[in-house]
């Protein structure tokens, strides 16, 4: 399973990438595989503030709904509008076109894993 080297990861299978004073967030290849084919994505409203650890949206497959928890607190500066019409981007391109939201803030203080540690986590979860 692919794990891009230029991203950081959470234990709940999200990836983050710093872009200026904001953080781009998505779910990992492993997460989308567990979820199955995504049929609907509910994203937070741009301009709203989200709290770390709180639900900021949902990802729906045919048989399951999974909550999107905000990995950090801050203002939502951008949401991936392409997912509205093409939720399958989350499956096709989880690390790129299937990104979810961009939140203003920094990764400081977040409990993040580097690609190697995330790979080890996946290894552990699968056994």
């Amino acid at each position: 399973m692919s794990i891009p080297q230029d991203l950081l990861y959470t234990k709940s299978h999200e990836w983050v990438r710093v872009e200026g004073d904001s953080v781009v967030i998505g779910i990992t290849h492993y997460a989308q595989d567990q979820l199955g084919e995504v049929v609907f994505v509910e994203l937070p409203v741009v301009g709203n503030a989200v709290e770390a650890g709180e639900e900021m949206g949902t990802l729906e497959s045919v048989k399951a709904v999974s909550e999107m928890l905000a990995p950090l607190s801050g203002e939502v500066v951008e949401a991936n509008e392409a997912l509205e019409d093409s939720p399958d981007l989350v499956n096709q391109s989880p690390f790129d076109e299937g990104w979810l939201v961009k939140i203003k803030g920094s990764i400081e203080g977040m409990d993040l894993l580097d690609p190697q540690s995330y790979a080890a986590l996946l290894e552990a979860e699968q056994h």
């Binding site: 729906e60 497959s61 045919v62 048989k63 399951a64 709904v65």
Partner: peptide
Amino acid sequence: LSTREQHIRRAK
């Protein structure tokens, strides 16, 4: 759209 229903979403 059965994800709206109780057997999947349970309390939600």
